[in-house]
């Protein structure tokens, strides 16, 4: 075991993993985090805590992660390269681990131009690839990036993101390979809607032997409405939403669109369970945490394994 985190145990034991996501509040209300956490408790193996997602200031990811631990859930501490330099990143990793955080997801981060402080300095001292490698060196070699020894190194299960859909599409599997070589233990993909493209991506990953070195969790976000689908298709960079899905949602008719979105997600999950190389699903039910128990139940992923 690299970290002994619950997520690592689930994957190591060969179970089909099921992870969730929680966005911290734009304020200090810990109760809000606890309330969202209750919908996820017992239904997922680990919960991603986003780090100022879409470059909007929120309660810090490690702080919300600690609230989650106190509620008996396992966080997956997200860290982006936009807001901290290598000193701050490493000290946060030490502190997070000292408080019991065992999973991390290493990301570049959305550009600050999108957020609520577009005039801010984007740090990007290191990039997500270098962050993955830094955490690996901290864990396995007990070394800081600067080369000094770490007393009691942090044993982190290292996660990274992968987008199989963004251009240049042909390069995406190679970038995945690079992240694995840099030290990623598990991958959570971008929300998948184009199943054809994802099947090709997974086949490439399997053929390159990548799925033997790393666990790949397929990203699922149920569509709540036609508006959301159109927004994802047109306004979220790197997102691939086929017209056929938008049509399917539209055809479901008024009052039935959200249910159709969940149905599509459930069909995806069924396919992922059988798809070679897919080790689990990462469910990003954005501001829809209360739907997670129902989705988990209907997806047949309950009860979650315990150790």
């Amino acid at each position: 075991m690299k970290s002994g985190s619950n997520l690592e145990k689930v994957l190591e034991a060969g179970h089909f993993a099921f992870t969730g996501e929680l966005g911290p509040p734009r304020g200090t209300n810990a109760e809000e985090v606890r309330k969202k956490a209750q919908f996820l408790k017992g239904n997922v193996d680990s919960v991603n805590i986003t780090d100022n997602q879409t470059a909007v200031v929120r309660m810090s990811s490690w702080a919300a992660s600690l609230i989650l631990i106190s509620e008996g859930l396992e966080p997956n501490f997200q860290m982006v390269c936009r807001d901290r330099n290598r000193l701050a990143m490493q000290s946060d990793i030490l502190g997070a681990y000292a408080h019991g955080i065992k999973n991390m997801l290493c990301l570049s981060g959305d550009h600050q131009k999108f957020g609520d402080h577009p005039q801010g300095l984007g740090v990007f001292d290191i990039d997500s690839m270098q962050l993955i490698n830094m955490v690996k060196e901290m864990r396995d070699e007990g070394k800081f990036l600067g080369g000094a020894d770490i007393e009691d190194p942090p044993k982190i299960f290292i996660g990274a993101a992968s987008n199989p859909f963004a251009e240049p599409v042909d390069f995406r599997v190679h970038r995945l390979a690079k992240k694995i070589a840099a030290g990623a233990d598990f991958i959570q993909t971008q929300c998948i809607y184009n199943m054809d493209r994802f099947r090709i991506f997974m086949k490439q990953a399997v053929d390159m032997g990548l799925t033997e070195k790393c666990y790949i969790l397929a990203g699922v976000t149920p569509m709540k409405s036609v508006g959301m689908a159109r927004y994802m298709a047109n306004s979220v960079p790197g997102m691939d939403v086929p017209d056929s899905l938008i049509k399917r949602l539209k055809d479901a008719g008024k009052g039935k669109i959200a249910e159709e979105g969940i149905k599509f997600a459930l069909e995806q999950i069924e396919e992922f369970k059988e798809m070679e190389g897919v080790a689990g699903v990462h469910l990003m039910a954005i501001e829809w945490e209360h739907k997670v128990p129902e989705i988990a139940e209907r997806a047949g992923v309950l009860p979650r394994p315990t150790f």
């Binding site: 990007f124 993101a161 963004a166 251009e167 790197g238």
Partner: peptide, 16 residues
């Protein structure tokens, strides 16, 4: 825009 050394990030938008 992010000064990445190991790009491209997941935010590429049809080449933009």
């Amino acid at each position: 825009a992010k000064g990445l050394y190991n790009g491209p990030c997941g935010g590429t938008n049809k080449g933009s």
